[in-house]
């Protein structure tokens, strides 16, 4: 019953929170309308979903989110320093091909987004058949090291989070 009413529990929760933020109130009226939105919208979007994403171990988020936020901050300072001081001919940009161990589409999207948000790297292309994510690194003297770092810091926790 609950599963029929809320086929996408995560999406519904996200919609309620978004609604409450939009109307900027916690009044009962806003809450009720938020619930209506959360029930009405997911069925309209089922065509766009492969299947509902499921978090196997939500506790991993507690470990992953601080790491990512911290990396965004620190690495942004590094990139700012490069942009401000490094002459263009002393940049060492590099394309990295990251072999993926995770296959779950949601995990892959999350990984690609995290890679883009942590500066110094932007994901530019995904080869789903070969399982390779192509990433452009702004200044990367040691590609092997960068790939290993990304796999350890982000891919491994994401694998735990989305798969088994």
């Amino acid at each position: 019953m609950l599963r029929r009413l809320l086929p996408h529990p995560l999406l519904s929760a996200f919609l309620v929170i978004t609604w409450l933020l939009l109307v900027n109130s916690l009044s009962p009226g806003a809450l009720v309308f938020g619930l209506l939105v959360a029930i009405a919208i997911p069925p309209l979007t089922t065509r766009f979903w492969i299947r509902a994403p499921r978090l196997h171990r939500p506790a991993v988020l507690l470990r992953l989110v601080p790491v990512v936020l911290w990396d965004i901050l620190v690495a942004n300072l590094t990139v700012a320093w490069i942009v401000l001081t490094r002459p263009a001919d002393r940049l060492r940009p590099q394309f990295l091909a990251i072999p993926l161990d995770i296959r779950d589409p949601y995990a892959t999207v999350a990984l690609a987004s995290i890679i883009t948000l942590t500066p110094g790297t932007v994901s530019v292309q995904l080869d789903p058949d070969a399982g390779v994510l192509h990433v452009h690194a702004l200044d990367c003297p040691d590609p092997e090291d960068a790939i290993a770092g990304i796999k350890r810091r982000y891919e491994q926790p994401l694998g735990e989070l989305f798969e088994c």
Binding site: V79, V83, A88, L91, P93, F95, L117, V122, H136, L138
Partner: peptide, 22 residues
């Protein structure tokens, strides 16, 4: 800094870095 990167970095792929995160 993001816009400065966009204006001064040498090729398209390096320019992609400035705006998307800084």
């Amino acid at each position: 800094v993001g816009s400065l990167g966009l204006a001064r970095l040498p090729d398209f792929f390096t320019r992609l870095h400035g705006p998307t995160k800084a």
